[in-house]
Design a protein around this nucleic acid. Structure first.
Length: 489
RNA sequence: GGUACCUUGGCCGAGUGGCUAGGCACCGGUCUGCAAAACCGGCUACGGCGGUUCGACUCCGCCAGGUACCUCCA
C-alpha cells in the first residue's frame, strides 16, 4: 500500500498527508445532485473528481465505502423562508408526483454518469428515505439547546453556537461580518437571525412533500440530510467529505455546526472541494443559465457546441485540469482534449504490440514511481497525463527502432498504462460507428476496397474521386501502410 | 460593501527560488502517386511597477484586471 497520499484539506487550507481513521477502511461522503433537472457539465466534475479518488484509494489498497446522496427533498429555491421546494415545483409544473420527478432525473443522472465511466457509489441514499434520521438529528440539536422552534419550524441558533464553537471555521467567515452583510430582516421572519438555518420546516398547506414530526407537518432543511445520512452509514467519525466548492458555504459550514452539536466535534477529518467549470470565464451554473447538459455535449445539440463530444473526451478534458483549479470550457479546449486522448489510446495499442529486446535504455520503474508521485500529490492528474504523453514518445521511438526495451521493463510499462490510464483515470476505448449502422459500415468498406484496387492499378482519378466524394458526405478516409481507416466526421 | 482566490506562450493547462511540464494549434521534416493520417523535430511564456536575494515566473508590497462565496447552484 502506498502511504504517501497527500490531499488538500479545505478545513486547514493546506495539503495534508492522508491517514485513515481505521485502515484499511476509508469512509467517503460526497454531496450528490438535487434531481430536478438534467445533469450538466458542472455535475460531471465532482462525479469524476471523487471517482478518481475512489479508484485511487482502491488501487492503493483501501476498502472504501463511498456514499453519495441524492437530494430529493428540502432543497429550496431562493430564500429559506419563502422558497419553493425544487422537486415540488417541478412536479407541479409537470403535473406528476414529486417522486416521479426524482425517479426520472435520477435515472437520467445515472445514465450519463455511466457513460462517463463513473463508478457507482457503495451507497446512494435519498433524503426522503431518511426523514426519521433527520428528525432525530433535529431533536438532538434541540435537546442540546442549539435550536429553537418557531411557527412549527426548527432553526439552528447560529449565534449561540458561535459562543462556544467557531461558526465559519470551514469557510473562513466571521459571524460579525455576516451580521453586517446579510439583508435586513423584514420583521416577518421566523428566524432570530438571518444567518440561522432551518433544520425542519413547517409545511404550508399547498406544500406537497410533507411528513409528520414532533413539530407538526413539515419537511427537513437542506443541510440536515448530509449530516444524518453521512453519519448513519459511515459512523460517528469518518474520513472524507467532498463536494463542489460552491457548497462550502453555507451548506458544509452548516453541516459542521450540526455535526458538532449532534454527533461530536471534528467528526469528519478531511473536507475536499472541487473547483467550478467556467464558460467564458464565468461559472457554469443553473442560476446563470449558461450550462450545457451532458446529453447536449454527447449529441452536439447546443448552439454553442461546434460538434458532439464523446463521454471519454469530456472525462479526459476534466482530468487534464487539477480538480482544485477552475476549468474553462471552450470548443477549442475540448477538441484539443479529444485529439490528445485519441493519440494516447493509439499509443497504448502500439505498446501492446511492442516486442521486447535484449538491450534496454528505458527505466520503467522510475516511470511508474513518477506516476504514483503525481497522484499522491493531491491527485495531480494533469501531471500524470503529461507523463503518459512522455511515455508515448518512448513507445513510438521503440516502434521506430530508435530505442530498446527489455522484457522486464516492457512488462512494467504495460502495467503502468493499464493501471493509470484505464484503472485509475478511468478512461476506456470507445466504439465508434454507434449502434445499428452495420450496413453503412459494410458499404463503405466495399467502396474503399474498390479504391484499393484502383490504387493498385494506379488509377488515381478513380481513387481520388472515391476519397473526395466520401469526404463530401462526411466520411474521412485515412490510408495506412496496410489498408485503410475511416471515420464519420 | 465583506471575505477568499486567480492573472503562465495563439488556446487549454501543470509547476518550481537557480535545473526549458504536457496537450492542441502553428511551422519544418519523414512517409505517401498526391493529400490526409501517423511519426520525428521546432515553437523557451509566466498582468504592471517596485522590493528582498548572488539569482524571482516562483517570496514581499503596491497597482490593474478577473473570478468565487456572502441567496438557489456541482
Amino acid at each position: 500500500m502506498q502511504e504517501n497520499l497527500v490531499l488538500y484539506n479545505s478545513l486547514s487550507r493546506k495539503k495534508e498527508k492522508f491517514t485513515a481513521i481505521n485502515p484499511p477502511f476509508v469512509g467517503m461522503y460526497v454531496c450528490g445532485p438535487t434531481v430536478y433537472g438534467d445533469a450538466h457539465l458542472g455535475h460531471a466534475r465532482p462525479a469524476i473528481t471523487f471517482d478518481l479518488l475512489f479508484r485511487y484509494f482502491q488501487h492503493i489498497g483501501y476498502k472504501v465505502r463511498y456514499v453519495r446522496n441524492i437530494t430529493d427533498v428540502g432543497h429550496l429555491e431562493n430564500d429559506e423562508d419563502h422558497g419553493e421546494d425544487k422537486i415540488g415545483k417541478k412536479a407541479k409544473l409537470e403535473q406528476v408526483e414529486p417522486m416521479e420527478i426524482v425517479q426520472f432525473y435520477s435515472d437520467r443522472y445515472h445514465r450519463e454518469m455511466d457513460k462517463l465511466n463513473v463508478l457507482r457509489p457503495s451507497i446512494e441514499p435519498r433524503a426522503s428515505g431518511h426523514i426519521i434520521e433527520q428528525i432525530e438529528l433535529t431533536q438532538k440539536i434541540l435537546d442540546a439547546g442549539y435550536a429553537y422552534i418557531s411557527n412549527g419550524s426548527v432553526y439552528f441558533d447560529v449565534e449561540k453556537y458561535n459562543e462556544k464553537y467557531n461558526y465559519g471555521k470551514l469557510s473562513g467567515r466571521v459571524l460579525e461580518d455576516l451580521y453586517s452583510n446579510t439583508r435586513e430582516l423584514d420583521g416577518q421572519s421566523e428566524k432570530r437571525n438571518s444567518f440561522d438555518f432551518a433544520l425542519w420546516k413547517n409545511a404550508s398547506p399547498e406544500h406537497i412533500m410533507r411528513w409528520p414530526s414532533p413539530w407538526g407537518q413539515g419537511f427537513p432543511g437542506w443541510h440536515a440530510e448530509c449530516s444524518a445520512m453521512g453519519h448513519k452509514y459511515l459512523g460517528e467519525k469518518f474520513d472524507i467529505h467532498g463536494g463542489g466548492m460552491d457548497l462550502l458555504f453555507p451548506h458544509h459550514e452548516c453541516e459542521i455546526a450540526q455535526n458538532t452539536v449532534a454527533i461530536g466535534e471534528n467528526s469528519i477529518n478531511y473536507w475536499i472541494h472541487n473547483n467550478m467549470i467556467t464558460i467564458n470565464g464565468q461559472k457554469m451554473g443553473k442560476s446563470l443559465g449558461n450550462f450545457i447538459t451532458l446529453e447536449e455535449l454527447f449529441t452536439g445539440s447546443n448552439k454553442v457546441l461546434e460538434k458532439a463530444y464523446s463521454p471519454m473526451t469530456i472525462r479526459f478534458f476534466i482530468l487534464q485540469a487539477q480538480y482544485r483549479s477552475t476549468l474553462d470550457f471552450s470548443n477549442e479546449a475540448l477538441q484539443a482534449a479529444e485529439k490528445g486522448l485519441i493519440r494516447l489510446l493509439k499509443g497504448v495499442e502500439n505498446l501492446n504490440n511492442l516486442k521486447a529486446n535484449k538491450q534496454n535504455n528505458f527505466d520503467a520503474q522510475k516511470f511508474r514511481q513518477d506516476c504514483y508521485n503525481a497522484m499522491n500529490d493531491d491527485l495531480n492528474s494533469p501531471i500524470l497525463i503529461s507523463y503518459l504523453f512522455d511515455g508515448l514518445k518512448t513507445i513510438n521511438s521503440i516502434v521506430a527502432g530508435n530505442e530498446n526495451i527489455d522484457e522486464n521493463n516492457l512488462n512494467i510499462l504495460k502495467e503502468v498504462y493499464d493501471t493509470f490510464l484505464f484503472e485509475i483515470l478511468g478512461l476506456k476505448l470507445e466504439n465508434e460507428n454507434s449502434g445499428n449502422n452495420k450496413i453503412l459500415e459494410n458499404v463503405v468498406n466495399i467502396v474503399l476496397n474498390l479504391r484499393v484496387k484502383a490504387k493498385e492499378n494506379k488509377d488515381w482519378a478513380s481513387s481520388d474521386f472515391i476519397r473526395d466524394e466520401l469526404a463530401k458526405i462526411g466520411i474521412i478516409v485515412k490510408d495506412k501502410k496496410d489498408g485503410f481507416e475511416w471515420e464519420i466526421q
